[in-house]
Each structure stands twice: as C-alpha cells, then as structure tokens.
Amino acid sequence: MNELLKIENLHANVGEKEILKGLNLEIKKGETHVIMGPNGSGKSTLANVILNNPVYTKTAGNIEFEGENINNLKTDEIARKGIFMSFQSPEEIPGISVMNFLKYAKNKTTGQPVKVFQFKEEIAKNMEELKMNASYINRNLNVGFSGGEKKKTEILQMLTLQPKLAILDETDSGLDVDAIRIVSKGIKMFSNENNATLIITHGTKILKELDVDYVHILVNGQIVTTKGGELAKEIEENGYAQYIS
C-alpha cells in the first residue's frame, strides 16, 4: 500500500476558537508535500493536531495513517507509528545528552535494542553532513543551542529515527541562507520512495533544492488550492492575495 497519511474533513479548536475548518490532505509514499499560507492560517496547528498535541481538540474529521485511524492515539504512540515532527521552537532538555536522547528515542520508536557502535558512527556521519560541530553530541539536548543548531538537531533526529512521514514545521524560519541549504540537504538525504515529507513553511528558499510534488495553500483553516512545485514560485512573486477572499 502506498497511502501514508489521509486526512478527511478535519476540524480542530484551540480553546473555543476553531482553527482548522474542514481540512483534507492525502500523502503517499515517495512524495514531498509543501503547505504554505499566511500567518494564522492554521499551518502549525495542522502539524500539532496530527501529533495529537493536547492543546488542540479535534471536533470533527479523521486522520488515518497507513490505513489506521490515529485520531485517539497519544503523541508517543503516533510517533512510534512512524510520524516525526520537527518543531518550530524545539524544547531544551537539561540532564540528557544529544547522544543519549537519540539512543533512547531510537529504542522507544523501534522497540529494538540499539547497536551502539554502528549507531554512533551513523550519527557522526550525519552530523558531518549537517555541518554540526561534533562536540554537540555530548551536550545537553538543545540547552544553550543557537536557533540554527536547534533546527539542525531536529534534522539529525529525523535522520536517526527514520520515520515514514516527516513533518517539518517552519524548520527554515529564522535561518540564514547557508543553514537553509544544510536543512534542505538533510531533507534530501532523508527522502526515498518508502517515506514522505510534509514541509510547512512561509518561505520558498527551502524548496529551491528539493523536488516538490505538491504545494497546498492553506487559508483560514482549509486547503484552498493544490498544484505542483511551480505554485511556490507563483506565491513568491504574487503573495497570497488572490487566495484570500
């Protein structure tokens, strides 16, 4: 089966306020999707609702992953099904090193013991690709990291945990051109025919070096347009004005 994620008529609230108002989305293996939209349109909400962040309540609709309804699964269970989210502002976790955290999370997501030697080598290689200073591996997770280092650490986690679906929530925001290039390189390293990527962004720089299959425009809690990669360019030139009615 090629189908990974299928969202039907999704409605979600934060408090009393409705943010997602009947959203539909399908993602298949091997695809790269992009969601763009003006501030407050519900982009980040979508990522959080897929991972069932308790801050949001789903009021209607379905989320299926590999044919299974994941509406009522807890966040950690969803992660173990193979969905990963790169956070817009990753949390700082004192008391645990990046290495130990990766080992721990890998163990939890796969349910298998981690082969330490091989694992370390793989991480070292990925860190090099992401141009991360090797010393970060022993530092406390995200504690005192710059914005750019935090985002790279998110990509490192993605490469390590090898999810089936990676959701990148504004991973490019606040990054300089070089860092964005490194992040897109990470995404390229990750992508293959057995997994998929959903990139949430309001910029287009990150898309330049990626093969994007679909671009969705999210306005006011609904996807209003879906086209191929060329849509991103159009937005870059003309903005969202024509999609906001």
Binding site: V55, K74, A79, K108, Q157
Partner: peptide, 10 residues
C-alpha cells in the same frame, strides 16, 4: 509534547 513526539511515553 516534544518528548512524546519522539516516541517517549508520558
């Protein structure tokens, strides 16, 4: 939420 999104139980 961040930690749980990495497959770690509550």
């Amino acid at each position: 939420f961040y930690l749980m999104s990495r497959g770690i139980s509550e």
